[in-house]
Computed example of a mutant assay.
Amino acid sequence: MGPVLLLAAVMAVDLPAAEVIRRYPAEEARQGVAADARHLYAVDNSRIGKYDKATGAKVGAWSGDPDRFPHINACVMVKAELVCAASNYPDVPMTSSVEVFDPRRMVHLRSIPLGQQSGSLTWVEWRDGAWWATFANYDGRGGEPGRGHQYTRFVRFDSQWRATGGWSFPAAVTARFAPMSSSGGAWARDGRLYVTGHDHAELYVLALPKGGATLDHLATIPAAIEGQAIAFDPGSPRVLYGISRARREIVALRLPPVEPR
């Protein structure tokens, strides 16, 4: 028998709370936020508001047909385009699409229909020449029989939206998603993945595993954002934006450092 390689379990740590450094009133702050160098984009199903980062003033908006765009959940800036995760939530069977916008003119450019996947697309990211997407599953409203919140999946696609890998979320994290799912996520510059649920005021720091198909849970950070979609500031690697649905605000946070594993 050959040598046996033992993989040490990753133990998550609790970190200090993220520091609130600014709040921006934004009427569309119901699903999430995206960011570029100068602007913030508040997302609300079939509406997106564009806000000046320096002044907080609203400088643009897009509004779509709610029947065609019932649930745009999260957006990210990729190569000067605003790329958004969308679905037919809470209708079933679940169908998903990626909706692409011109952030300068705030107009819709095109749709990438993904159809029926392993859940409902809630957020998407671009990194290392690949698309990374989370497909949510729910215990109740919007869910499908036999697939509860534990079935939420993180999937890697190539540039043509062909799946090239997939991971489950750790049980300790999906327990915090329940009965909903992951509503937001963003890659940090250090290669870690920061993820939110739907309601809890905390961030989960994850990493691709060195073996197996379940993401590693590195840390949990309390944060005043009540879950929902998030975005890193492109100019400040430890500044992250989230939203407060209750207060209709975009919240700027400074994250505590996460020690190398």
Rank of each mutant, 00 (worst) to 15 (best):
Thr214Arg: 04
Ser97Glu: 08
Ala61Cys: 03
Ser46Ala: 13
Tyr138Glu: 05
Ser97Phe: 06
Trp123Arg: 09
Arg30Trp: 15
Thr134Pro: 07
Ala252Thr: 04
Gln117Ser: 12
Ala252Leu: 05
Cys75Gln: 01
Gln116Ser: 15
Val43Phe: 01
Tyr41Val: 07
Pro179Cys: 06
Gly197Met: 07
Ala136Ser: 13
Arg68Tyr: 09
Leu218Glu: 00
Ala207Phe: 04
Ser183Lys: 10
Asp139Met: 12
Met180Ser: 12
Pro93Ala: 03
His198Thr: 13
Ala178Glu: 12
Phe177Lys: 03
Asn73Cys: 12
Lys210His: 15
Ala171Lys: 14
Met106Gln: 08
Ser182Gln: 05
Ala136Asp: 08
Gly115Glu: 00
Ala136Leu: 10
Tyr194Gln: 04
Val251Asp: 00
Glu19Tyr: 04
Tyr89Ala: 06
Val205Ala: 01
Ala224Trp: 02
Val78Pro: 01
Ile225Asp: 03
His200Asn: 15
Gly165Phe: 03
Pro66Met: 03
Leu203Ala: 03
Ile21Trp: 00
Asp102Lys: 05
Gln117Val: 12
Pro70Met: 06
Ala35Cys: 09
Leu40Gly: 00
Ala54Asp: 14
Ser182Pro: 11
His39Gly: 07
Gly49Ser: 07
His108Met: 14
Asp91Ser: 15
Arg238Ala: 13
Arg68His: 09
Val107Thr: 12
Ser87Gln: 00
Gly184Arg: 03
Ala172Phe: 03
Ala37Gly: 13
Gly56Ala: 09
Ser181Ile: 06
Ser96Met: 09
Pro16Cys: 07
His200Arg: 15
Arg22Lys: 10
Thr196His: 04
Ala61Gln: 04
Ser159Ala: 15
Asp139Tyr: 12
Ile230Asn: 00
Leu121Cys: 06
Ala9Ile: 11
Arg127Thr: 09
Val4Pro: 13
Ile21Glu: 02
Leu206Asp: 04
Thr122Val: 14
Pro237Asp: 03
Arg38Leu: 15
Gly146Cys: 05
Glu125Ser: 11
Ala229Asn: 00
Ala85Ile: 08
Ala130Lys: 13
Gln116Gly: 14
Gln228Thr: 09
Asn137Thr: 07
Glu259Thr: 15
Ala172Cys: 07
Val13Asp: 10
Gly143Ser: 10
Glu226Trp: 06
Pro256Trp: 04
Tyr41Ser: 09
Ser63Tyr: 04
Ala130Ser: 15
Glu249Arg: 04
Thr196Glu: 01
Ser182Asp: 02
Leu82Gly: 04
Ala8Arg: 11
Ala178Tyr: 12
Ala246Glu: 11
Ala136Pro: 08
Gly32Met: 07
Val83Gly: 08
Glu249Met: 06
Lys79Asn: 13
Leu7His: 12
Pro170Cys: 06
Thr164Cys: 09
Ser182Thr: 12
Pro16Asn: 03
Leu114His: 00
Gln150Cys: 09
Ala231Val: 05
Lys50Asn: 08
Met106Lys: 10
Thr55Leu: 08
Ala42Leu: 02
Gly166Asn: 11
Ser183Trp: 13
His71Asn: 10
Tyr151Gln: 14
Ala80Cys: 11
Lys58Met: 10
Arg192Val: 07
Arg104Ala: 12
Arg68Asp: 11
Thr134Ala: 09
